[in-house]
Amino acid sequence: MWWWTIRVALSLVVSVGALGLTYWLWDGGRTWVGPVLLATAAGHLVTGAVMPTVRYRVHRWECTDLAVYELKGWLVREWRIIPISRIQSVDVARGPVQQLLGLATLRVVTAAHEGHVKIVGLDADVVARAAAELTALTQATPGDAT
């Protein structure tokens, strides 16, 4: 949850900072930069207040012997299901913020780009264990439908 909050905060700092700088330095553009600046700031504040909680409550994932399931989304709900037999590889990725918070991302890759499952913000130990289990399961199941 804090991970999303931090990401919103970073995005707020970058975009509002850039727009604010434009507003301050470029006199001629103030008529239209002003409203855009206000809208961006307001949008980020609302997102920062609501989004992390909603996401934390909505996001679910599960690995069974048959498939990997994932439910995610805030404004757009998305369910993804990948049968174990279609998995091509399993990755674990950790960004700088995730390392700080002891989190990791589990990525399940299939032969189609749209078929990936990316489960973000999990406890690093859980991800490591899940990745090991999935790898073992995948190796035991033949075929990847390519």
């Binding site: 757009v76 299901i81 990948i82 299939t110 032969a111 189609a112 749209e114 439908a145």
Partner: peptide, 25 residues
């Protein structure tokens, strides 16, 4: 079929609709 991808936006949830996508190789 390599899996299923189901999407539902706020408006779709309100109208009772679902989008189904199938990734393939």
């Amino acid at each position: 079929v390599l899996g299923l991808k189901v999407r539902q936006t706020l408006v779709q949830r309100w109208l009772g609709l679902v989008s189904l996508g199938v990734p393939t190789a």
